[in-house]
Design a protein around this nucleic acid. Structure first.
Lengths: 335, 335
DNA sequence: CCTACGGGTGCAAACGATTGCAACCGATCG
DNA sequence: CGATCGGTTGCAATCGTTTGCACCCGTAGG
């Protein structure tokens, strides 16, 4: 923990003015090569590092983008973050990350706070209500939404219409005619989309779709077990893999064989989906790519263009052992 | 996306000087109550938000702390981050997050970059080598290390000595005398600590300890399957739960019954450990607490004190169905 | 030999906020 | 009635960096 070296220190040591040092270090062609070399040498010797705060301040061009996620520990979000962080870093930007804890009001507070520090905002799976979203979009910075469609902002999302179709067609292909959807958080736009597109597709495929409330974590799936068992569906679609794995765990504990008695499929295909018992059929999506695309929308916008059209990513079904042919299920048994 | 309102705009509108506005907004007692009210009103009306970049620059006191993690998608790190983010936010600080991708050189680059933007650094499970760490500590900001012990820096870590003892005592209590450790990334300090403490404790408990290389992800555990099966150990300890779950999956695929033929236990107890098949015996640690403690060390230091002594967190064993009494295992079978 | 030119350099103004200090005002006191 | 004082307010400097502009000086051309 040493003292901070400033431009003026380098200038003094090199026997020139601060402007010369600044220009030499930034590679301006106004300075003679010898001076550049000398200044560089002195700066290196002194261990000079530009104060980025001052730099950013002076230049006015913010080098930081704020990001909100509902939950840092959800693998979906962390992978989006991973992609976004890599892309932003490659572009010379830093990421200011805030977690809202799935709470819309907290998210709004976060947004207002982040915007003071950042030149752009990325809202990942925003839980904001309409009014909150309006407020966010009125802020003096560009905003990109991941997994939420909005006007006057960048949009990058999973194509849930395609997703739900792929999932349901897989199940109908196995003979299932009655499917139960175990939902996610009600504040989640993507849960709404999953429901909407599932309903619509179910209608067109002549599938009976039931829906129940759920959540986003393993225990939500586990807790949904009894309700699932009571339902007359032969296949279950869960909001995400965490819920799916939780449900599988309950089914195993209660001797319901998967997929013989019940098929389970899910969205996202996070890594553990491959290692659950049985391995979970799931819709793989390129989450890191979501982050990258968000970044490229942002750079386009930052360089003065209009918002590009929304990027929609079509997922790909990974069939594993949790889905199988529909059978007539043994009816309600005592659990 | 509106225009940025500055202090001078508020001043003009309110018919006073910028200094008055600044003082009124910051609650200085030098300003008469009426003026304060008026300025506040005007500021609110205009939607004034202080430019934190300028503020931070002027005040010199950085409100941002940089954090590095090896991998954002690892649940261990994301929970640490969660705790840290919450604590920092409560203290009015923002988190600048960088992911090194488990690469020591990338981490060094990250550190050097983050330090230019931050007033403090938190290295979470740093993969830096000795030289890199020296460099980081020589930077003009305080540094806290999570899960890595270092001199002249804040230290917050899991007490792996206690951890390994608890784990091994659990296994010996079940009659196991030969244990295999499936390791983690070689750059990981915590893997080194786990090995060191396991060896030491094994010796004192008269347990034979074998070790193999592994990694940090599910597939590392899965891939270790054949080697595990060939070993003569009756119990396996894996580097973390992801590896553990991967291994369980391989064992299941290859008809090795857990825990009848082989017991598996692990470190960390991430949420999915409860939902694997069988549920995984694991050492619960308060990861979010690690983040909070890192923050409190930092605040202590930032307020001028010396570094507090290292905080060590003792984990707690959560016994689940993956560990059971040692049996004479059926010997090597064709897989 | 003087002027014009131009490459290289430094001076000083900015960016937006905070803050020490001076200035101002009405009121009080000698 | 003038000096003083306490309470408010504004002026101006400041943080570290970038950058427009003026300046200096050597060289070349008239």
């Amino acid at each position: 923990m040493a003292e901070r070296v400033r431009l003026i220190d380098v200038a003094r040591e090199a026997g020139t003015s601060v402007s010369t040092v600044s220009r030499a270090l930034n590679g301006s062609d106004l300075i003679s090569p010898e001076v550049v070399a000398h200044v560089r040498a002195v700066a290196g010797e002194l261990g000079y590092r530009a104060d980025k705060r001052a730099q950013e301040f002076k230049l006015g061009r913010p080098l930081t983008v704020g990001v909100t996620v509902p939950d840092l520990t959800n693998p979906f979000f962390s992978e989006v973050l991973k992609g976004l962080a890599a892309a932003a870093r490659a572009g010379g930007y830093r990421l200011l990350i805030g977690e809202s804890g799935e709470d819309p009001e907290e998210e709004l507070r976060l947004v207002e706070e982040l915007v003071d520090h950042s030149g752009a905002l990325v809202l990942c799976s925003s839980r904001l209500n309409r009014a909150g979203l309006e407020k966010a979009l009125a802020l003096p910075v560009p905003v990109v939404c991941i997994n939420r469609t909005v006007k006057n902002a960048g949009v990058v999302a999973i194509d849930y219409r395609a997703a739900s179709r792929i999932l349901l067609e897989h199940l109908t292909g196995l003979g299932h005619r009655r499917v139960l959807y175990v939902g996610g958080p009600s504040t989640s736009w993507s849960d709404g989309e999953r429901r909407r597109t599932l309903r619509r597709t179910a209608r067109s495929l002549d599938v009976t779709l039931d829906e129940i409330e759920g959540g986003w974590a393993g225990h939500h799936g586990y807790d949904a077990g009894p309700t699932v068992l009571r339902s007359r569906a032969t296949a279950v679609i869960t909001f995400n893999d965490l819920v799916g794995v939780g449900l599988l765990s309950w089914l195993h504990d209660n001797d319901v064989d998967v997929p013989t008695e019940l098929s389970v499929a899910s969205y996202d295909d996070i890594p553990i989906a491959a290692y659950s018992r049985p391995p979970l059929t799931s819709l793989r999506n390129e989450r890191a790519r979501l982050g990258e695309l968000a970044w490229s929308q942002l750079t386009a916008r930052l360089s003065g263009e209009d918002w590009p059209r929304p990027d929609l990513l079509t997922p790909e079904l990974v069939v594993r052992a949790s889905t199988g042919p529909a059978r007539r299920r043994a009816r309600i048994r005592p659990s």
